[in-house]
Each structure stands twice: as structure tokens, then as C-alpha cells.
């Protein structure tokens, strides 16, 4: 396993696009961390975002994983381009001729994908921990390390998205088209969602909330970490002053989504392997 990781890391290390995108990713994380310090002037009084309690433990875990999730697109581009360029440079063929089996080749990519997801999780964990330690009003360990399930959700969301990108890269064989496919699929899922929601309202069904939100891969992925805005004190106090009927928010990670996301990850890996095995190069 270490050998396979070593092989894939060698490819990653010496690829220009992956270097650039990793730097962009890290830069954005750091910039996001710094936003906490930015002072906002309201009515002549200076506030910082940190004063809103955004970085209080354990809210910081939820908030940072939610926002950092949007950045997974950058790492996804790395995965898609690393995979698809193996086809366009025909290095995939050469790897096999040099003595890598098709299974080993896919495993090296899957392992690396898992490592990238873990790395992203660790980076967000460290960034949130630092932010929290600086700005949080609570610093008891029992509070700091509560509600860390969001990091698990963050990891799973990355895992399923990355395996999806891996599959797209292998299926389409061209980096740009593979990214296009991911985007088109995203639109496709959005359309299905919109139709389902429309039907639900019209016929009083429960297709979207009951099924689609958990079944479709991108839905389940985004549903793992739900929006944290209504948890923020300021918003919370506003909504509690003006109660809206039927407006209740849940924030927990649902088991159904975890299972769905794991099944999809498995399917994407399996389909990638099946494609690789069946195709002549």
C-alpha cells in the first residue's frame, strides 16, 4: 500500500497543475482564517467577525467545515487532471507495461484520494482549532472537542466527491471534459431536485425530502453538513423574535446520508475498476 501511495505521490509531486491548485487551496484556507480579524465598522463602532461568536467552540467546527467544503472543487480538479492526463499522455498504458496491474493502478489512485480527503480534513481541523483557541469564548476541553462529527462528515463529503471525480476522469479520459461532466451532472441533479420539489408541493408528496436528498450522491454529500447560519447567535435571536411557522432546522449528520455516501464511493471505485479492466488501451 505504501508503494502504491509512493507511486501516486510521485506523480502528484511533479505535476504543475496539482502544485498550483494545492497552493491556491491552502491560501484560501489561510485567508478565510484571517477574515475573523477583519474589523467591520457599524455606526462608528468597530466590530470583528469574531465578536459575533462565529469562532466559538463547538460552532467553529460546523461553520468552518461548511465553508471549507466549497473549496473541495480545487482538489477535485487535481484528481481529475491527474487521472485524465494518464490517458491523454498514455502513461496509463506505460504504467501497466512497466508492471503495475490494473488493480494496483486504481488502488494507488483510490489510496491517494483517501489521503487527500484526510489531509483536507486535518488542515481544516487545525485551522478551526487555531481560530477557536484564539477567538472562542469557551476553552474547556470538553467543549472544544464536542460536536466534532462535522469533521467526519467533511471527510466523507470529500471522499464521495473525489471518487466521483476519479470515476469521471477515467470515464471521459480528458481532463476538461471530465470536469464538464461533473458540472453537467451537478446541473442534472439540480433539475431533478427542482422537479421533485415542484411535484412535492403540488401533489403533497415527499419525494425530495424523503428520498432524493439522501439517495442522489451530490445531494447526500451536501446534506452531510447542513447550513449553520441559523445557529449563529445573531440570526438565532432574530428568528426567535419573529417565529415563522414550519421553520425548524436540524443540524445533525444523518446516518442515512453517511450510508448513502459510502455506498456511492464504493460504486464509483467499482465502476472505475470495471471500466479500466474492460477497456483496451
Amino acid at each position: 500500500m505504501l508503494r502504491l501511495l509512493d507511486i501516486e505521490f510521485h506523480k502528484f509531486k511533479h505535476s504543475k497543475s496539482s502544485k498550483v491548485l494545492t497552493i491556491i487551496y491552502l491560501t484560501i484556507i489561510v485567508v478565510l482564517m484571517l477574515t475573523g480579524i477583519i474589523p467591520i465598522t457599524i455606526n462608528g463602532e468597530k466590530y470583528a467577525l469574531s465578536d459575533l461568536g462565529l469562532f466559538n467552540f463547538p460552532l467553529v467546527w460546523h461553520l468552518s467545515t461548511y465553508f471549507a467544503s466549497f473549496l473541495k472543487v480545487f482538489i477535485a480538479i487535481v484528481i481529475v487532471s491527474l487521472t485524465a492526463s494518464e490517458y491523454s499522455n498514455r502513461t496509463l498504458k506505460q504504467n501497466l507495461i512497466d508492471g503495475l496491474s490494473k488493480k494496483e493502478l486504481l488502488l494507488s489512485k483510490v489510496y491517494f484520494t483517501i489521503v487527500l480527503a484526510i489531509t483536507a480534513t486535518v488542515i481544516v481541523f487545525l485551522a478551526s482549532l487555531i481560530l477557536g483557541l484564539i477567538y472562542s469564548d469557551f476553552d474547556e476541553p470538553s467543549i472544544i472537542f464536542s460536536q466534532m462529527g462535522y469533521l467526519g462528515g467533511f471527510f466523507l463529503a470529500h471522499l464521495v466527491f473525489f471518487t466521483f471525480c476519479l470515476f469521471a476522469g477515467i470515464l471521459v479520459k480528458r481532463g476538461a471534459f471530465a470536469l464538464g461532466l461533473v458540472f453537467v451532472y451537478y446541473i442534472f441533479e439540480s433539475i431533478i431536485n427542482a422537479v421533485a420539489k415542484g411535484l412535492d408541493t403540488y401533489y403533497d408528496w415527499n419525494i425530495y425530502d424523503g428520498y432524493l436528498v439522501h439517495i442522489l450522491p451530490l445531494n447526500a454529500m451536501s446534506n452531510l453538513i447542513k447550513q449553520p447560519f441559523t445557529k449563529i447567535d445573531l440570526v438565532k435571536s432574530t428568528t426567535s423574535q419573529i417565529p415563522i411557522e414550519g421553520l425548524e432546522f436540524t443540524y445533525d449528520i444523518e446516518w442515512l446520508d453517511i450510508i448513502s455516501v459510502l455506498i456511492w464511493s464504493g460504486l464509483f471505485v467499482y465502476w472505475s475498476f470495471a471500466l479500466l479492466k474492460r477497456r483496451d488501451l
Binding site: 507511486i7 502513461t91 504504467n95 507495461i97 512497466d98 508492471g99 503495475l100
Partner: peptide, 29 residues
């Protein structure tokens, strides 16, 4: 295949790696 050496049609290597980096990868495989 690890014990043979083979070149098929045109040479396939990673374009942005230099010769040594490419050969190191082959050694690893």
C-alpha cells in the same frame, strides 16, 4: 512485466517531469 523492458509505439512519459524523475517513477513501479 516487472522483469521485462518494453516500448510500445511512441514513448509515453509524464511531460512535466524530467528524465530522472520519470525514470525514478519507473523504478518505483
Amino acid at each position: 512485466l516487472k522483469k521485462i523492458g518494453a516500448i510500445i509505439e511512441r514513448p509515453n512519459f509524464y511531460p512535466s517531469m524530467n528524465a530522472v524523475q520519470n525514470l525514478k517513477l519507473v523504478c518505483k513501479i
